[in-house]
Structure formats: C-alpha cells, structure tokens
C-alpha cells in the first residue's frame, strides 16, 4: 500500500490522462475561445485552487521545461509556492521566477508585464470559464447561446452598466471576443491585462478543473474586449509609479502602510519589479533621501 502511494507518474497524471487532456488542448487551439469539455481528474489540491491549470501544465510539461508559477503576479504567494513545489516534487523540472527564462508560466489573475515570446506557453487557472454564467446559469442554455452566437445579452449587461454607472464598471474577468467568433472569459485577470492577450506571440491555455473545461487562444489571434463604439474599452491607469522601481504603466498593488491612511503602490508583477531594480531603476521609496526631499 505505501509503495503504491509513493510512486506517481512523471508530472503526477498517468499518460492516458495526459493524452486525453492534450486532445482537448488541441481541439481548443483549433477552435479559439471555444470551451472544450474534458474529463477533469481529481487532483491532490482543492478544486478552485488551480486544478485546471495544474492539469494543463502537467499534460504539456516535459523534462526540458522551465516552469514559473505566479498568483496575483507574484512568485511568492502561498498558492504559487505550493503549485511550484508540487511540480518540483512530481516532475523534478527546473523552476524560475524570471519571466524571460520560463517556457511555461502558470498564472492566476495576472499576465506578466514583460512581453511573452513564441517559445512560451501561458497557462491560466480558471474558476468559472463561462462568460455568460451570471447572465444565464444553465449550461444547456449557455452552450446553445455560444453555438448560435447569441451574445446580445452580454451587451445588455454592458449597456446596463453604462446606464447605471455612467461607464462600464467591470474591472476584471472582462469578456473578450476571440478570433471574431467566441465570447470568452479571460479568467479573473484585471482588464488591464486584456490587451496583452491580443495577437500574443505566446500560446495561451486556460484550464478550469472543477468546471471541466479547457480553452485556448493560439498565438497571433485577435482578442477584442467587448465594448460600445461610443464607450470604448479602457484599461486601468495609475496616477503613481511603482514606489520600488519607478515603473509606469504597469499594474500596481496597493499596500497599506499604517492605520493613518498611509498607502504605497508597488508592482504586482514581482519579477518585473526586481528586474527593473537590478537594472538600476529606483522608485520614490528607495530613492536617496535628498532626492525624496526635493
């Protein structure tokens, strides 16, 4: 019994399961944005914690690969650490925190700031793959809506947003249309990252374990965020620069410094921030005192 328990196949999943998942991935790549049902396996981590992404990564990873895992843009968040450790244990692959060195990047909630290349695969962990889910809870109905390209309801939601709030107030998991056909949920990444999906050089794979769906955006594919002509899609902007590396035009985390309203903003992409600092960029917080005083 213990001997059985101790031995697992390379990257945990048995080869038959990997083949099944690879077939789903190939189908997903062939039909960009279409959610391919797959026989998601029980994984040794909880549903909702990246089982879909882990299954996709486990099915495509080889011994030569270099893996990076991020959660909220950071390599050192506990769930990212845990997933990275899992692959080190079951696949013994090289891991990295450097975006540029990775061949596979598994992510939750962010796309790295650095432009990805055609040698890289970005694997998203997806909680709810169905962009129409909160408009129509029924799977049988949403599949029909996708099949018949009935996406009017999606714009009703956006219309309503503008009517009530004066703007499209959706800030993350912002729906996109892929290759002019399927409406897709980009997973709960902030809409700031949506433009990075468009015509990306890297292959983007999406795995939803609990909901048993895999979908994909092949390299060089059109990804358009839904909007109105007179209310065009906009991404978030930050007034500040990163306090550590001075980066501008990147996604920032707000850090609470004290109980008197003190705040600072730092890069959400920790690797990007470290890389910049190594190259001598300095933010307000790290600047020598006299400069800060000026």
């Amino acid at each position: 019994m213990t001997a059985d328990l101790a031995t697992y196949n390379f990257a945990y999943l048995d080869e038959q399961t990997k083949r099944m998942i690879r077939r789903a991935i190939l189908k997903a790549i062939a039909i960009p944005g279409y959610q391919v049902p797959f026989a998601s396996r029980e994984m040794p981590m909880p549903y909702g914690w990246g089982t879909g992404g882990v299954q996709v990564t486990a099915s495509i990873i080889g011994r030569q690969d270099v893996l990076k895992v991020i959660d909220q843009g950071a390599d050192d968040t506990t769930n990212a650490v845990s997933i990275r450790a899992f692959f080190q244990k079951v696949a013994d692959v090289a891991v990295t925190t450097h975006t540029k060195d990775a061949t596979i990047i598994q992510t939750r909630h962010r796309i790295p700031e650095q432009k990805l290349t055609e040698d890289q695969v970005l694997v998203y962990q997806v909680p709810i793959p169905e962009p129409l889910r909160f408009l129509e809870p029924r799977e049988t109905e949403t599949r029909k809506m996708h099949a018949l390209e009935e996406y009017g309801l999606m714009h009703v939601k956006l219309y309503e947003d503008i009517a009530q709030n004066g703007r499209i107030s959706k800030t993350y998991a912002y729906p996109v249309k892929v290759d002019g056909r399927y409406v897709m949920d980009p997973s709960p990444t902030p809409k700031f990252d949506n433009p990075k999906m468009h015509m990306s050089d890297a292959l983007q794979l999406f795995g939803a374990g609990r909901e048993k769906r895999i979908y994909a955006v092949p390299p060089h594919t059109e990804v358009v965020s839904l909007d109105f002509e007179d209310y065009p899609f906009e991404i978030q902007t930050f007034e500040q620069d990163c306090a550590l590396c001075g980066a501008h035009g990147v996604y920032l985390d707000e850090v609470v410094l004290d109980d008197r309203g003190g705040r600072m903003f730092v890069c959400s992409d920790t690797d990007h921030c470290e890389d910049r600092r190594e190259h001598g960029h300095v933010g307000a917080m790290l600047a020598p005192n006299q400069e800060a005083a000026e």
């Binding site: 009017g152 009703v156 219309y159 009517a163 109105f228 002509e229 209310y231």
Partner: peptide, 16 residues
C-alpha cells in the same frame, strides 16, 4: 432601456 435595446444589440448594434 436595456429591455428595448436588447434586440438591437443582438443583431449587432454597438453604439450606446
């Protein structure tokens, strides 16, 4: 407004 506009959006109107 959205109730009336839904059919227009369903057939591709994209100007709020």
């Amino acid at each position: 407004g959205a109730n009336v506009g839904e059919r227009l959006m369903a057939v591709g109107d994209r100007h709020y």
